[in-house]
Design a protein around this nucleic acid. Structure first.
Lengths: 218, 218
DNA sequence: CTTTTATGAATGAAGG
DNA sequence: CCTTCATTCATAAAAG
């Protein structure tokens, strides 16, 4: 429940403030992490779609002379690895050796049930050795346990292995049914905005149909 | 209890969150209203572009027999070089981008209690964009809410600096030639209305329009 | 610098 | 609803 109260920022002191725009100071409008995440995903999704489409287009154009509908240099730099990244500025926590040591020790103590209260406690302790949040600790234990578990399964390469029959557990969600492939997505209002008033120019594909007028239907 | 459910766009400021940031690359998640608006518009534009691209693609595919080119499942990211050749469909449901958008929108509409009937309704709508079940929707809302709540309480503060006064001037500044990392965030870089740079692209991006480095087949 | 690995984080689903 | 698990994704770190 509410045990997840936010932790106070541990960075008691600014190492050097070299980062510029340090935490304090000129903020006009701030987005929560969640909002940022949503935005990031949103953009990433479109970037992915765009990327895929461009590839498809390239494939197609290589087979046909579609000079009339060229998209030109419509290529997006990998957004997921650089673009959106800059926006969110996500970084992942990296445990310090000391923190890691403590965590490992606690883990070995046989505590298979890291309760939330425990998490808080651990977090407090670890924050002595570096910035950390309860979420980090939580995740760490989750991952640690999962990893341990999986490792037990893996080692099975002794002697003549019985041809482990591939379990065809393919329930295969018909997520990719060829029949409904026409799931043409219609861009919902991303952020409650209307794109009507936006005039966007496409490179060479100015011939692009106006989405509002010709919504096309296969 | 202050349920955070949905975030009114008028959010004034963020409590603690990423204000701090270690000595390293600290991102100032700050945006002015204007910038936010621009960003939103840009995303909307992106949506429009994608829509058009999809239509274009459909037009093209109707003229050619493309083997196995599916547009629906954009998610099958081949980034996985794990060598696993089995393309086993995922067992668990993965929302398509469109479904996700719709879900997010509904969630933002402030409905904290998706009734059963509502679930059915939503499911019906979403099934237009891909396979989905009521259970999926139900779970999604449950998880969504839990997640929001938790993020509210536990602002993730990453980037640990265990005394190392290293100035992580940025994440892998692989190629950030553009100065959008400047303190003044310029959304324009994301989706410039310019014809040339339709997408997020780096000025330095070489002509190598190779999408994600082809993971290729080992 | 590019590729690979290790692992933190995200998320759908199950349990209670 | 809240917690927990399993799987997957992304990225910092390591290897080449």
């Amino acid at each position: 429940m509410m045990e997840w109260e936010k932790q106070p920022p541990q960075q008691a002191e600014e190492p050097s403030g070299g980062g510029g725009g340090g935490g304090g100071g000129m903020y006009v409008k701030v987005m929560t992490d969640e909002q940022m995440e949503v935005l990031r995903k949103q953009i990433a999704v479109y970037a992915t779609i765009c990327e895929q489409l461009v590839e498809l287009h390239k494939t197609l154009t290589s087979q046909n002379d579609l000079s009339g509908v060229r998209l030109g240099n419509l290529y997006c730099d990998p957004l997921m690895t650089s673009g959106a990244h800059k926006i969110t500025g996500r970084q992942r926590w990296t445990p310090t050796p000391m923190q890691l040591q403590i965590l490992e020790r606690i883990f070995d103590q046989g505590v298979g049930t890291p309760s939330k209260q425990k998490i808080k406690d651990i977090t407090t302790e670890l924050s002595q050795h570096g910035q950390i949040s309860e979420t980090n600790v939580y995740n760490w234990f989750q991952n640690r346990r999962a990893r341990s578990k999986r490792k037990q399964h893996a080692p099975q390469s002794n002697n003549n292995n019985n041809g482990e029959s591939e379990v065809e557990t393919e329930v295969e969600s018909s997520n990719e049914k060829k029949t409904n492939t026409d799931e043409s997505f219609q861009p919902q209002n991303i952020l409650s905005s209307n794109s009507e008033d936006l005039c966007f120019q496409n490179p060479q594909s100015s011939s692009a149909v106006d989405p509002r007028t010709s919504k096309a239907e296969p």
